[in-house]
């Protein structure tokens, strides 16, 4: 016991079982690299994208509907070709991924905040409060998430004045996707809270006199976060898909700031006139991103709870 000095946070992470499991799993390494590349190229799109698809000065209608660079009529400036307005597909994908990822992350965080708080309260307080929250969750679960998102989107469109539509749609989208996903978090957190609240460290805190709010925040919350992180990762993939679906249906983000879903919808119209690249490449990008995030989530679930396999 003599010579033990405080281990730094990084040293503890590198020594942990989860890091060990990560370095042994090629799936986890590859999917996290892919995810990081997509996130990186999305975040830094304004600096690394070959051209700016939203700079009206730079767009030339003469470049419209060019096939990918390796085709006969391709142009080396546009690696993956251009759409009907002469915007480079690669660049629109990078900008589009920005929107998709923003909506994905924001709605997951929103879901987490709502779901975790309600789950903690439900599990810790119990009784009527618990029954009411969980019945609301049950009711919501009986509707498909996409339906709730569509409904909320429709309501928001009715309430917000027309000229503000384009500015607020993205936040409406975050709210709609976020609110349709909180139930999972609430249920998981409630279950873990029921276990944790009967553990003796929570009772010790109660005997000291710590108030319920502090007990939940300081003692229970850190101990229920494990499964939540797994759900969040898988939920991120679902949220991105939901956003794409909504945008594909035309109720998502406006075409002026297209997300991957919007790009697929726009391209869809050209699919049968031979301009396949307009829709295939955004679609492939979406599949790769969602698959990588999903595999990462699966790995995380197995690593945190080997018994679940």
């Amino acid at each position: 016991m003599e010579n033990i000095v405080e281990k730094s946070r990084i040293a503890r992470i590198l020594d942990s079982d989860i890091w060990h499991s990560f370095t042994r799993s090629p799936v986890a390494i590859i999917s996290s690299i892919v995810t990081l590349i997509v996130i990186f190229s999305a975040v830094f799109a304004p600096f690394i994208a070959p051209n700016d698809p939203f700079d009206l000065v730079a767009i030339d209608i003469m470049d419209s509907s060019l096939p990918p660079a390796w085709e006969v009529e391709g142009d080396p400036r546009f690696l993956l070709g251009t759409d009907d307005q002469g915007r480079g597909i690669l660049s629109t994908i990078m900008y589009g991924a920005r929107i998709s990822l923003f909506v994905g992350f924001a709605s997951v965080i929103f879901s987490m905040i709502v779901g975790i708080s309600l789950g903690l309260i439900s599990g810790y307080v119990g009784g009527r409060t618990d029954a009411i929250i969980m019945r609301i969750a049950d009711i919501q679960l009986s509707f498909p998430a996409i339906l709730i998102a569509l409904l909320l989107d429709g309501v928001a469109r009715g309430l917000v004045p027309k000229e503000m539509h384009n500015d607020v749609t993205i936040y409406v989208l975050v709210f709609a996707i976020g609110i349709s996903g909180w139930v999972q978090y609430a249920r998981t957190v409630r279950g873990s809270t029921l276990v944790e609240k009967n553990k003796e460290y929570v009772q010790a805190a109660r005997i000291i006199g710590i108030r319920p709010g502090t007990i939940l925040r300081r003692h229970v919350l850190p101990n229920v976060m494990g499964p939540v992180m797994v759900i969040a990762t898988i939920h991120l993939a679902i949220a991105i898909i939901t956003e794409a679906t909504l945008s594909f249906l035309g109720v998502g983000v406006p075409p002026t700031t297209p997300s991957l879903g919007t790009l697929i919808r726009i391209g869809n119209e050209y699919l049968f006139s031979g301009e396949w690249w307009i829709t295939i490449f955004p679609g492939a990008a979406l599949v790769i991103l969602v698959l990588a995030v999903n595999l990462l989530g699966d790995w995380l679930r197995d690593a945190l709870n080997p018994k679940l396999r």
């Binding site: 553990k199 003796e200 460290y201 010790a204 005997i207 000291i208 101990n223």
Partner: peptide, 13 residues
């Protein structure tokens, strides 16, 4: 007034 619990593995966070 304080209390010491039975299970040393669950009584500490």
């Amino acid at each position: 007034m304080q209390m010491i619990f039975q299970d040393p593995f669950s009584s500490l966070n």
